[in-house]
Amino acid sequence: MHGVRVGDAWCCADCGWRYGDAPDPDLPLPRIDVVYYIRYDDRVKIGTSWRPRQRLASIRHQELLAFERGDRSVEQQRHREFATVREGGEWFTLTPELRAHIAALRREGDPWLLYARWLSRTLRGLDDSR
């Protein structure tokens, strides 16, 4: 993350929050739906959650590969897109095509930093994904 000077304060260049500011902890956080890609051996689970920390903590996996902003409709679209390599349920074989898709998502940045940016932008009313 990079900072910029705004007046007499330092702010995050990505989300605009002033350094040291934080959302009111008594207020609920906004809902941010993500499609997640997690790896276990040579398999990838493509799932969705609006609470990714809790969700990923409950699934056995070796690595979080990527997040994509989206809800169940995006998840279902990805399931159709990679249907030929589905192993069962939401698990898919990690093929070159699936690797390329994940690599494209990774170019956006680290999954947790992306999630934090989406959350921050939504809290500031700058969410342009809707």
Rank of each mutant, 00 (worst) to 15 (best):
P23N: 04
R51D: 14
R51A: 11
G47K: 00
E63F: 03
R31E: 00
P30N: 03
P28T: 01
V35R: 08
Y19P: 03
R55E: 07
G20H: 01
Y40H: 15
S49L: 12
D26M: 07
I38E: 09
D42H: 06
P52F: 07
R39P: 14
L29V: 09
R31F: 00
Q62W: 09
G20N: 00
Y40G: 06
I38Y: 15
R43D: 13
E63H: 04
R31T: 03
L56Q: 08
L56M: 08
I32T: 13
P23M: 02
H61I: 03
S49C: 06
I59Q: 08
Y36W: 11
S58F: 11
R55S: 12
Y37P: 13
R55W: 02
L27M: 10
I38Q: 14
Y37F: 05
R31P: 00
I38A: 07
Q54N: 13
P30M: 07
P52A: 04
E63P: 06
G20V: 00
R53D: 14
V44M: 03
R53Y: 15
V44S: 02
R60I: 08
R53I: 14
Q54H: 12
Y19T: 14
P28G: 15
R55G: 07
G47L: 00
V44Q: 04
D42I: 00
A57K: 08
G47T: 01
V34P: 01
A22C: 02
P23S: 02
E63Y: 06
R53A: 14
Y40I: 02
I46T: 11
W50Q: 07
P23A: 05
G47P: 00
S58K: 05
T48W: 02
R31C: 00
I59H: 11
R39F: 03
I46P: 01
L29F: 06
P28Y: 09
R53Q: 14
G20W: 01
D24W: 04
P23K: 03
D41Q: 12
S58T: 13
Y36I: 12
D21I: 01
R53N: 13
D26Y: 03
S49R: 11
T48P: 09
Q62T: 12
A22W: 01
D21G: 02
L27R: 12
V34G: 02
R55M: 04
R55H: 12
V44N: 02
R51C: 06
T48H: 05
A57T: 14
L64Y: 13
R51H: 14
D21H: 06
R53K: 15
G20D: 01
P25L: 01
D26K: 15
R43C: 03
R53S: 09
L27A: 14
R60Q: 11
E63A: 08
G47Q: 00
R39Y: 07
R43I: 01
T48M: 15
L64A: 04
V34S: 02
Y37E: 15
W50C: 15
H61Q: 01
P28R: 15
R39N: 09
Y19D: 09
T48A: 05
Y40M: 05
I38V: 10
Y40P: 13
E63K: 12
L56G: 10
R43T: 04
R51F: 04
P28S: 13
D24P: 12
Y37R: 10
R51Q: 13
S49F: 04
E63M: 03
L29K: 10
P28M: 12
D26A: 09
I46C: 03
Y19L: 06
R43P: 05
Q62F: 02
